[in-house]
Computed example of a mutant assay.
Amino acid sequence: MKKEIDELEDELRPEYDFSKMAKGVKGKYVERYRAGTNLVLLEPDVAQAFPTDASVNEALRLLIQIAQRQQLNNPIIRNS
């Protein structure tokens, strides 16, 4: 087992100097990760039409409402 660990350590590149990482904070973003972030990259034309996160959310909520109304009014979609 010790030999396997030594072999792995030998594969690290010299530029990976972990002693310089002393200022890092363990778990710095854990709360943000647990909260669940959902990043989406918008195409330029879409971003121009919806320049803020609030405008994107509003448009998507309206689309959800329309889709739900369509499902209620269309028995074929509702039963599938």
Score class of each variant (00 low, 15 high):
20 K>S: 07
12 L>D: 05
9 E>T: 08
63 L>M: 09
25 V>S: 06
44 P>W: 01
67 A>N: 09
22 A>I: 11
7 E>S: 04
1 M>V: 12
53 D>L: 07
34 R>C: 07
38 N>K: 11
26 K>T: 05
15 E>P: 00
79 N>Q: 13
56 V>Q: 01
24 G>D: 15
49 A>Q: 02
10 D>C: 09
76 I>E: 15
12 L>E: 04
76 I>M: 08
8 L>P: 05
22 A>T: 07
46 V>L: 07
39 L>S: 11
69 R>A: 14
39 L>V: 12
40 V>L: 06
51 P>Y: 07
78 R>M: 14
24 G>H: 13
62 L>A: 15
10 D>W: 03
21 M>Q: 08
9 E>M: 14
79 N>S: 15
30 V>M: 07
45 D>V: 03
69 R>K: 12
9 E>D: 06
25 V>D: 01
43 E>C: 10
44 P>E: 07
66 I>T: 14
5 I>D: 00
66 I>W: 11
47 A>V: 03
43 E>K: 06
62 L>E: 12
54 A>V: 03
64 I>K: 14
30 V>S: 05
17 D>M: 05
68 Q>H: 05
18 F>E: 13
65 Q>P: 04
26 K>C: 08
45 D>N: 06
71 Q>Y: 09
49 A>G: 00
4 E>K: 15
29 Y>M: 14
8 L>S: 04
34 R>S: 02
30 V>H: 01
30 V>Y: 07
23 K>Q: 11
22 A>D: 12
48 Q>V: 03
63 L>K: 06
23 K>R: 09
49 A>K: 00
27 G>I: 01
70 Q>S: 13
15 E>I: 05
27 G>L: 02
23 K>E: 15
15 E>V: 07
5 I>P: 00
27 G>K: 02
37 T>Y: 10
65 Q>C: 11
6 D>E: 12
7 E>T: 03
80 S>T: 12
36 G>T: 09
54 A>L: 05
54 A>Q: 10
27 G>P: 01
44 P>I: 05
41 L>G: 08
34 R>Q: 08
77 I>C: 09
32 R>V: 14
19 S>M: 06
1 M>I: 14
59 A>G: 02
65 Q>F: 08
4 E>N: 10
35 A>W: 01
66 I>R: 15
32 R>T: 14
71 Q>W: 08
69 R>C: 10
1 M>G: 12
55 S>G: 01
75 P>A: 02
9 E>G: 00
75 P>Y: 05
78 R>W: 04
52 T>C: 01
80 S>H: 09
24 G>M: 14
55 S>M: 07
66 I>N: 13
